[in-house]
Design a binder for these strands. Structure first.
Lengths: 215, 215
DNA sequence: GCCGACTGACTGAATATTCAGTAAGAATCC
DNA sequence: GGATTCTTACTGAATATTCAGTCAGTCGGC
C-alpha cells in the first residue's frame, strides 16, 4: 500500500511531465519554423514520439500552440514579478529591469516568440489576451519600480503611469529592432537608449543609471 | 493609325493595371486573414478572377505576397519622404510626423500589415529587408526633422540620431499597443505619449508640441 | 488567324486528425 | 500474493482535407 502510493512518479506526474515535454518541444519548433509553419509532425519528431500522441494530449494543434504560449507567458510574468520585488535602490532595480528587457542575442527565444505572437494576436482573441497579460505584467513592474523611486525621492515625475507606458513601449520597439537585426541598433545601443530615455523621464542626471549598474 | 496608337490603355498598361489590382486584392485578403493564412484562391475570389490567372501574373504565392509588401512599403516610404520635406516650422513638422504615425483606427491597414511582416521577417530575409527599408525611411525622416529643428534653434539635443532612433522605436511600441487594443493605450494617449517624449528629448517646454498642432 | 489574357478542371503533395490495436501498469477480487 | 479485469499512454497507418501550382483550351482584339 505504502509502496504503491509512494511510487517515485505517479501516473499523473508522468502525464504532467510528458505534456511539459511536448510543450517544450513545440516551443523549440516554433522558434525554428515560426508559429504558422509549425507542423505537429515536427513536434512529434522532436520528442521522438508518434504523431498520434500529440493529439492524445492536446485536442488540436491550436490548443498545443496556445498552451505553449500561455505556459511561456506565465513563466515570463513570474520573472517580471520577481524583478519588481527585488532588492537595492530604485535606480539599481530600474537598471536591472532594463537589462532584462534587452534580447540576450539576435535569437533571443522570448523575443522571437512574442514578435510572432503579436502577429497571431491580430486575429486570435486568445493569443491577444495572452500577450497582453505579459505586456501588462512588465509595464506594471516598471510602474512599481518608478513609483518606489518617486517615493524614495530618487526619481522625479508627475506621471509614473505615463513613464512606465512610454518606457515599456520604447523597450518593445527597441527589442524588435535588435531581434530583427536592424542596422544601428545593437544590444549595447538598446541598453544605452533605454538608459537615456529613463534618465530624461525621471529627472536623473545623464549617466546616473550607468553608474548604478557599475556599483 | 492615330486611333490605334492612341488606344486609351495600351496592352502593357492593362497588364500593369491587372497586376496592381491583384496586389491590392492580396493586401485586402492579408489584412483579413493574415500573411500566413492567405490563399491564392482568396485573392482570386476577391478579384473575381480564376485561380490560374494569379499564377499567370505571379510565379508563386510568395512572389505575390512579397511584391505586395514591397509595393506597400514603397508607398509608405514615399509618404515619409514627403513628410520630411514638408513646410512649416520644425515643431509643426514634428507634430505632423507624429500624427502620421498614430494608427488611424484599431484596424489601421499599415500597422496590421507591418506587424504581420515583422513576424514573417524573422525567418525571411527578403521580408526583413523590406520592412527594414520602411523603418529606415521613417527614422531618417524623423532625423531630418530633428536636425532641421536643431539647426534653426527650435530643438536642443546633442544626439539627433539617438533621438530619432528612440522616438521611432517608441512610436513602433505604441503603435503596436494601439493596434492590439491594449488597455490604457488609445490613439489619443499614443499621441500624447509621443508628444511628451519628444518634448523631453528635444528640450521643449511641456505643451509646445500641443500648441504647434493647434496653430 | 495570331497572340496574349484568361479560365477552370485537375494533380499531387503536404499535413491535421482519426482510429484500431498494443502493452504496461493499476485496481480489484479471491 | 496471484489471477483477473480495467485503464491509459502510446503507436502507426489510414483518412480526409486543403491548396499551390499546372495545363489544355477559350476568347477577343488587332
Amino acid at each position: 500500500m505504502v509502496r504503491a502510493s509512494a511510487a517515485r512518479t505517479s501516473r499523473q506526474e508522468q502525464v504532467e511531465q510528458r505534456r511539459a515535454e511536448l510543450l517544450e518541444a513545440a516551443k523549440q519548433v516554433v522558434l525554428e519554423r515560426g508559429l504558422s509553419h509549425t507542423r505537429v509532425a515536427d513536434v512529434a519528431a522532436a520528442t521522438k514520439v508518434s504523431g498520434g500522441l500529440i493529439h492524445y494530449h492536446f485536442a488540436t494543434k491550436d490548443v498545443l500552440l496556445t498552451e505553449m504560449l500561455r505556459a511561456e507567458a506565465e513563466r515570463d510574468i513570474a520573472k517580471a514579478r520577481r524583478l519588481a520585488t527585488g532588492t537595492g535602490t530604485s535606480l539599481q532595480r530600474l537598471d536591472r529591469v532594463m537589462r532584462e528587457f534587452v534580447p540576450s542575442s539576435r535569437n533571443d527565444q522570448t523575443w522571437v516568440l512574442w514578435i510572432d505572437a503579436w502577429g497571431a494576436g491580430l486575429r486570435d482573441e486568445t493569443l491577444r489576451t495572452i500577450s497582453e497579460e505579459l505586456d501588462t505584467a512588465w509595464t506594471t513592474m516598471l510602474l512599481t519600480v518608478v513609483q518606489d523611486g518617486v517615493a524614495s525621492g530618487e526619481f522625479e515625475t508627475a506621471d509614473p503611469r505615463g513613464v512606465a507606458d512610454r518606457l515599456s513601449s520604447l523597450l518593445d520597439g527597441l527589442g524588435l529592432r535588435v531581434t530583427l537585426q536592424r542596422p544601428g541598433v545593437t544590444r549595447k545601443q538598446m541598453h544605452e537608449h533605454a538608459r537615456v530615455a529613463a534618465e530624461l523621464e525621471l529627472g536623473l542626471a545623464p549617466g546616473s543609471l550607468a553608474a548604478a549598474s557599475a556599483s
